[in-house]
């Protein structure tokens, strides 16, 4: 069976080649920090969780069995870490599961930050696009956000996102579309 490059590195690490892990570490550190930072909005927490994910990868060396693309596995761990972090700190009122499908259900919509806490005009005045984008991301439901970030920033294909979120490609298509519409609405003043 032909494995992707990162899976091969992980298998080499499993066989005792520590340099392979160093390559994976360097490759995924920045990706994970950025993914988690955009997911949670906290730089400090992003580094902390990224280290947890990398540690899980490191400690999984003896038991690792490639079942999917390596990056899919990593982003699944990272997304679960983000969702657990949100639950732990009660950023929102209701629990959300990566495997839950009822995103349209109002009780599963995230309310980490009140949608009405800022207006695009206020954001535009106070902060630049980056801050507005960061705030807009906070208003997205978790699964929409995860799908959007994985696709847009981690260059994950729809099928890879589907693997990371345990859902169908059709669901990913819908999640990304709704995330895009939501962000476009929040950031409309920046994209004229």
């Amino acid at each position: 069976m032909r494995y992707d490059r990162d899976t091969q590195l992980m298998l080499a690490f499993k066989r005792g080649d520590k340099k392979s892990f160093d390559i994976l570490f360097k490759r995924y550190s920045v990706l994970l920090i950025n993914y988690i930072y955009r997911f949670l909005g906290s730089r400090h927490k992003a580094e902390e969780l990224a280290q947890e994910v990398l540690l899980k990868i490191y400690l999984a060396k003896d038991t690792y069995r490639p079942k999917a693309k390596f990056s899919t596995w990593v982003y699944r761990i990272a997304t679960n870490a983000c969702l657990n972090e949100l639950r732990r700190h009660e950023y929102h009122h209701h629990s959300v599961s990566l495997d839950a499908s009822g995103e349209e259900n109002p009780v599963n919509r995230k309310v980490w930050m009140d949608d009405q806490a800022f207006t695009p005009e206020q954001s535009m005045e106070k902060r630049g696009f980056e801050e507005a984008f960061k705030e807009a991301l906070k208003t997205l439901p978790e699964r929409q956000k995860a799908a959007f970030l994985l696709n847009r920033f981690q260059n994950a294909s729809y099928s890879e996102v589907a693997g990371a979120l345990s859902c169908s490609v059709a669901s990913v298509k819908s999640l990304i579309h709704r995330a895009t519409v939501g962000l476009k609405d929040k950031l409309k003043d920046y994209i004229i």
Binding site: S29, V30, N34, Y37, A50, F129, F133, L183, L187, Y190
Partner: peptide
Amino acid sequence: RIDAVPQVLPS
């Protein structure tokens, strides 16, 4: 615009 947002680097 989103793609132009700079990456966060590790400390």
